[in-house]
Computed example of a mutant assay.
Amino acid sequence: MSDFRKITEEDSYYNDIEKMSTSTILTSINQEDQKIATAVKKVIPQIENFIHVLVKKMQNGGRLFYIGAGTSGRLGILDASECPPTFGVNEDVVIGIIAGGDKAIRTAVENAEDNTNQAIKDLKQHSISKNDCVVGLAASGTTPYVVKGLQACQELNITTACITCNPNSPITEVSNFPIEVLVGPEFITGSSRMKAGTAQKLVLNMMSTTAMIKLGRIKDNKMVDMQLSNTKLIERGTKMIAKSLKIDESKAKELLLKYGSVRKAIFHATH
């Protein structure tokens, strides 16, 4: 793969960082961060192509899996864990899996990302099938846990995608829908938790949010299926219902608590 470039490991554009003033460090990081949204914009067509397939599969009961190691794995788990409270879906609809298991969410697990057979074992614990889609997250595009995991999925006719920050990396060869966000070298050489991590977070936000909108989980611009897990969300839901039904907030709150979601409260009040 002669065109493969490990941009994520290339030297930073900035030298003698430790001698910089605090203001210069912050300004320089911000300057680099401004490149991320532009890089993501360039891959919107690739994200869209994957979303079309993903939504069809999810409409037929399929699930979305993220697999990754280190920062990438944590970002997948973060996105997956926010789908149930935000969109009211079950916890087994979007699933994040990290190399090294749940312990690796908080602390690095030695050699976990180099285990080539573990990802498919982890996926099989969730009874993965060709109805599902698996997104491999690897800034470098070379993480063995992720690359071999996607390869095993393809052998089982499971749709694969990836989010990486290096062009023509090994992960793209095992992805039906490769998404390459080229953000350039990091402010601190090789620290892919920075620009590469932010780029992955942006794409994950776009991916899960768009899929959930297409699956009917948003009405107008409101989270009508959100879980009422704290006072702030109950207040938000109350305001939504009051505005929609043109009733006072005390009555709206009563309906919300009775039916358990904004969507159900509005439905029962209007039918």
Rank of each mutant, 00 (worst) to 15 (best):
I128Y: 01
Y145D: 10
I17F: 06
F187K: 04
Q46N: 15
L255K: 14
N111G: 02
N166E: 07
S169D: 00
Y14Q: 10
L256D: 03
R263V: 12
S175D: 12
R63N: 10
K246H: 14
S72M: 03
P85V: 09
D122M: 04
K103E: 15
S250N: 09
E48A: 14
F187C: 03
G88M: 12
N157M: 06
P84R: 02
T142G: 05
A265S: 15
C153K: 01
A119M: 07
N15W: 04
I247F: 10
G62F: 10
E180Y: 00
E10D: 12
K130N: 15
G184V: 08
S21R: 13
I234E: 03
S208K: 01
V147N: 03
T198F: 09
T142Q: 11
E113P: 03
R193F: 09
I36A: 07
G141Y: 06
I36V: 15
N205F: 11
I97F: 04
M223P: 07
V183L: 06
K239L: 15
G100Q: 08
L182H: 07
K103T: 13
T86D: 07
T172L: 00
I51W: 02
N115H: 08
I188C: 09
S129L: 08
G136P: 00
S250E: 14
R63M: 11
H52R: 08
R217P: 03
G76I: 11
G70D: 14
L204Q: 10
G70A: 07
D79H: 07
K195P: 14
I247H: 05
L204R: 00
L233C: 06
K57Y: 03
G141A: 07
K56W: 02
V89Y: 11
V203Y: 07
S129K: 09
D220H: 12
Y14E: 13
T270I: 12
Y145R: 03
L54F: 01
M207V: 14
I105S: 09
C153D: 09
S2V: 13
N117P: 01
T159G: 00
N205V: 09
V174Q: 02
V183S: 03
T198Y: 10
M206C: 05
I163M: 11
L54H: 01
A37Y: 12
I188G: 01
T172V: 14
L137W: 01
A139H: 05
K103Y: 14
C162P: 00
A104K: 00
K222V: 12
I47H: 12
K42H: 08
C153T: 06
T116H: 04
K121P: 00
I25E: 01
M226L: 13
R217F: 05
G184F: 10
T38C: 04
A269G: 05
P178V: 05
L137F: 04
K35E: 14
Q125I: 01
L78I: 13
L245K: 06
K243Y: 04
K124F: 02
Q151E: 15
S21T: 15
D79A: 11
S175A: 13
G260W: 09
I179N: 06
K6H: 02
C165N: 15
Q200Y: 06
P144M: 03
R106Q: 13
L137I: 14
V174R: 01
D132N: 08
R63F: 08
Q227E: 06
E9R: 14
I213V: 15
T142K: 13
N230Y: 13
S191A: 15
Q118Y: 05
E18V: 12
A138G: 08
K222C: 11
R74G: 12
T8E: 12
V181M: 10
A199H: 08
S2C: 02
